[in-house]
């Protein structure tokens, strides 16, 4: 039976040995290298994926940070604007008040001065008038004293006024 099928133990063992040699050589020279190459490639791919997720993570965090910073900045600007408005209003009011105060003070001073000057002027005028009246009176007196008639008339008139004031 075995003979008619051509099975020969020597050939069988020879084929087995040659296959074993083939297995050893392929494993040593080729498959071990393919194995390491595949492992390396898998590791590289995994690393890339991990890097990618990390980068995405970081990007997200960065974006959030940026957003927060934007928000904060906007809020600050708003706050500053409000503050500035307040400050401006305050300054304006102050300035206005100051201006008013100083104006009032000046007005008061001016009024005082004006009053003073008025007073001075009045005094001056009255002085002037007095001296003028004196001189006029002196002149008139000097003129009229030489006229006895006028003198009598005058005396009469003044007596009259006296009489009237007494009555």
């Amino acid at each position: 039976m075995l003979e008619s099928l051509g099975i020969n133990p020597v050939l069988l063992i020879a084929q087995a040995i040659s296959f074993g040699v083939l297995y050893y050589v392929l494993n040593k020279f080729l498959f071990s290298q393919i194995r390491t190459a595949l492992d390396e490639r898998t590791a590289a791919v995994n690393k890339t994926l991990a890097d990618k997720s990390e980068i995405e993570h970081r990007l997200q965090a960065f974006e959030q940070e940026q957003k927060a910073a934007h928000k904060k900045a906007a809020e600050e600007v708003q706050k500053m604007m409000v503050e500035a408005k307040d400050a401006a209003a305050a300054t304006k009011a102050e300035l206005v008040a100051k201006a008013r105060d100083s104006a009032n003070a000046e007005i008061v001073v001016a009024q005082k001065r004006i009053e003073q000057e008025k007073l001075n002027a009045e005094v001056e005028v009255s002085k002037h008038a007095k001296s003028l009246a004196q001189s006029i009176v002196q002149q008139l007196l000097a003129e009229k004293s030489s006229d006895p008639q006028w003198q009598q008339e005058q005396i009469k008139a003044s007596l009259e006024t006296l009489k009237q004031s007494k009555s």
């Binding site: 050939l11 083939l22 290298q33």
Partner: peptide
């Protein structure tokens, strides 16, 4: 050892693969 034509072919195939493996490796 009887060298038959089929074992010759199998040696050729084995040799071919070994050479390829060494060249590629």
């Amino acid at each position: 050892f009887p060298v038959t034509n089929s074992i010759l072919s199998s040696w050729i195939a084995t040799l071919l693969l070994i050479v390829l493996a060494i060249v590629v490796g």
